[in-house]
Each structure stands twice: as C-alpha cells, then as structure tokens.
Amino acid sequence: ELKPWIEKTVKRVLGFSEPTVVTAALNCVGKGMDKKKAADHLKPFLDDSTLRFVDKLFEAVEEGRSSR
C-alpha cells in the first residue's frame, strides 16, 4: 500500500521515476529499519536527497500506521 506513495515521492525528490529506489525503500520499511539504517541503505541511490526522502518515508509510514 506504500508503493504508490513511494513512487510519487521518489519522482518528486529525484525529478524522475526510479524503480530501484522504490524497491530499496520498500525493503527498508519491510525489514523494520530505523531512519539511520534506511538512510545508509538508500544513500547510494539518492545522494544529497537521502535525508529528505527518508524523513518523508518515515512520516508516511507513521501516518499509515496511525490511520489503521
């Protein structure tokens, strides 16, 4: 259920769609990584945008959990 949101956010942050980043982000969430681990995992794909993306990712995960 997070996938469409992650795809949109990747496109907004990077300026283009990147399926590799979407898959990696879903893996981070699925494995229950904390922000630091997720950022380390995604840094090779996102460079300077990593922290901004990870912040948005974790906000969305929290919103998703609290709306259930």
Rank of each mutant, 00 (worst) to 15 (best):
V10I: 07
L14F: 11
T20H: 14
G64S: 13
T23A: 13
E18N: 15
R68S: 11
D48G: 12
D40H: 09
F16N: 08
R68V: 13
E62G: 10
K35A: 03
L14I: 04
N27Y: 14
A25E: 14
T23P: 03
V22E: 08
D55V: 00
L26P: 00
I6D: 01
V29L: 13
L2Y: 08
I6G: 00
C28K: 01
P4M: 15
D40E: 15
W5G: 07
A60K: 14
V54T: 05
E7V: 07
D40T: 09
V21L: 14
K3M: 06
D34G: 07
V13R: 03
T23L: 10
S66P: 09
T23I: 03
N27H: 13
L14S: 01
E59M: 03
F16Q: 12
L42R: 03
V54E: 06
G30S: 15
S67F: 05
D40V: 08
V13S: 01
L46E: 04
S66W: 07
V10A: 04
D47E: 13
S66K: 12
R65P: 11
L26E: 05
V13A: 04
V61G: 05
L2M: 14
E18C: 12
G32S: 07
K56I: 11
A38T: 11
T9S: 03
G30M: 15
L26Q: 07
S17G: 05
G64N: 13
S66F: 13
T23G: 03
E62H: 10
I6M: 05
V29R: 01
R68Y: 12
F53R: 07
L26W: 01
E59F: 04
D40F: 07
A60M: 14
F16T: 12
R65C: 11
R68N: 13
H41N: 07
K11A: 10
V61H: 03
A25L: 12
H41I: 10
V10W: 00
V22R: 02
C28H: 01
V29P: 01
S66D: 10
E18S: 08
F58L: 05
V13I: 12
L51S: 14
A25T: 14
R65Y: 10
K56E: 15
L2R: 00
G32L: 05
T20E: 13
T20L: 07
D34L: 05
E62C: 08
T9R: 02
I6H: 01
L51A: 14
R52M: 14
E1L: 02
M33N: 10
E1V: 01
P4F: 15
H41K: 05
T50A: 13
L42M: 12
A25W: 00
A24P: 02
V29I: 12
D40C: 01
G64C: 14
E18V: 05
L51F: 13
A38D: 05
V29C: 07
L46K: 03
T9C: 03
K36D: 07
I6K: 02
K56H: 11
A60C: 08
K11E: 13
D40G: 08
H41W: 05
S17E: 10
T20A: 12
A39S: 08
L46F: 12
K11R: 10
G32N: 11
R12V: 09
L57G: 07
D48R: 10
R52L: 15
F45A: 06
A38C: 12
D55C: 05
V21D: 01
K37E: 15
R65W: 06
S66M: 12
S17F: 08
M33T: 04
T23D: 14
G32R: 10
P44W: 02
L57N: 12
K3D: 06
D47H: 15
T50Q: 03
E18M: 06
S67M: 12
D48W: 04
T9K: 01
K8Y: 04
D34E: 05
A24E: 14
F16Y: 14
T20V: 08
D40A: 13
D47T: 13
E59Q: 09
K36C: 05
K35G: 02
G64R: 13
K8H: 03
P4T: 15
K11G: 01
W5A: 13
T23N: 14
S49V: 09
G15Y: 04
A39V: 14
E63A: 12
F53Q: 05
T9E: 11
G32P: 03
I6V: 10
V10L: 14
D48K: 08
K8S: 09
T23V: 08
A24Y: 01
P44L: 01
V29Q: 03
P19R: 06
R65A: 09
F45H: 06
G64E: 13
K3L: 05
T9G: 01
R52W: 15
E63N: 11
R68M: 12
H41M: 11
V61N: 06
K3S: 07
I6F: 00
C28D: 02
R68W: 06
A60N: 04
A25C: 12
R52D: 15
P4C: 14
L46Y: 04
V21K: 03
L2T: 04
G64M: 15
V21I: 11
T20W: 05
F45L: 13
M33Y: 09
A38E: 02
C28E: 00
D55M: 00
R68D: 13
P4Q: 15
L46R: 02
G64Y: 14
P19H: 04
K11T: 11
V29Y: 01
K35P: 01
K56Y: 11
L2G: 00
A39L: 07
K35E: 02
E1S: 07
M33C: 12
R65G: 11
L2K: 02
S66V: 11
W5H: 12
G15C: 01
N27I: 03
K37Q: 14
F53V: 07
K35W: 01
K37Y: 04
V10Q: 04
K37N: 08
T50W: 02
E62R: 10
K3G: 11
D55K: 02
L26N: 01
S66N: 11
V13C: 05
D34C: 10
E63C: 08
S17T: 12
E62W: 02
R68C: 05
V29N: 03
P44S: 07
V54S: 04
F16L: 06
V21S: 01
S17V: 14
P4A: 15
G30A: 15
D34T: 12
R52S: 14
V29E: 03
E1M: 01
K37T: 13
E59R: 08
L51K: 13
N27A: 09
L51D: 15
I6R: 01
V29G: 01
R68P: 14
S49T: 09
E7Y: 05
L26D: 02
E63F: 08
D55A: 01
F45S: 04
T50R: 06
E18P: 09
L14K: 02
V22N: 04
D48L: 04
L46C: 09
G32A: 07
V10N: 00
E62I: 08
A60I: 10
E7I: 09
V21Q: 04
M33K: 05
